[in-house]
Every structure is written in C-alpha cells, then in structure tokens.
C-alpha cells in the first residue's frame, strides 16, 4: 500500500459513512449508551489482558445480525509474540 492510497482511503466519505454506521447500529441494536459500550469493552479487555498481550486501542466490538438474532463480535488483535500467560 503506497502513501497515496493510505491518504485517499482516509478521506473517502463512503468509508467514513460505513464506519459511523457500524458504530451507530451497534449502539441501536444493543440499545445502550456509548459510555456503557466503552465500559463493557474496557472490562472485557481487562479480563483478556490477564492472558494475552494486545493494545487497548486496537480493540473493536460490534453486534452482527445473523438470521433472527444478533451475534456480539469483538476483535482483539492478537500479537504474535504474546503467549498465554
């Protein structure tokens, strides 16, 4: 990926829209405030951090529709160097 594509990806309004939507819909579907979401994310991260190494700000959570129900998707990017403690 060259510098130009990184730069243009950042500025494309469609990508901003998609990211905003994912966040809005996760909150709508959960029916919780952004604060509660952040708190949940923080506490989950705290538990996992006892066992794995990862950077807090790389964690993301969303609620995905699967048929008639929702699945909580949480991404905790795992660092290759980290081992189960």
């Amino acid at each position: 990926m060259d510098f130009k594509s990184i730069f243009s990806r950042k500025t494309k309004s469609s990508n901003i829209a998609t990211q905003r939507l994912k966040l809005i819909l996760t909150q709508d579907r959960f029916d919780v405030s952004e604060d509660s979401m952040k708190k949940l994310q923080f506490e989950l991260t705290e538990v996992l951090a006892k066992y794995f190494e990862f950077t807090m700000n790389s964690v993301s959570m969303s609620l995905k529709r699967e048929g008639n129900s929702y699945v909580l998707m949480a991404d905790f990017p795992y660092q290759e160097s980290s081992k189960l403690r």
Binding site: K12, S14, T18, K22, K64, R65
Partner: peptide, 19 residues
C-alpha cells in the same frame, strides 16, 4: 459515486444489514 468513494457500496450495505 461509489467508484469515487462518495457513496456506500452494495457490499458494505449488505455487510451491515446482513439480509
């Protein structure tokens, strides 16, 4: 507009709504 990056693409809409 999708090509220019100024409209949400079909794939992104389907990924989000998942129907």
């Amino acid at each position: 507009l999708v090509k220019k990056g100024n409209m949400i693409s079909k794939n992104d809409v389907l990924d989000i709504l998942n129907i």
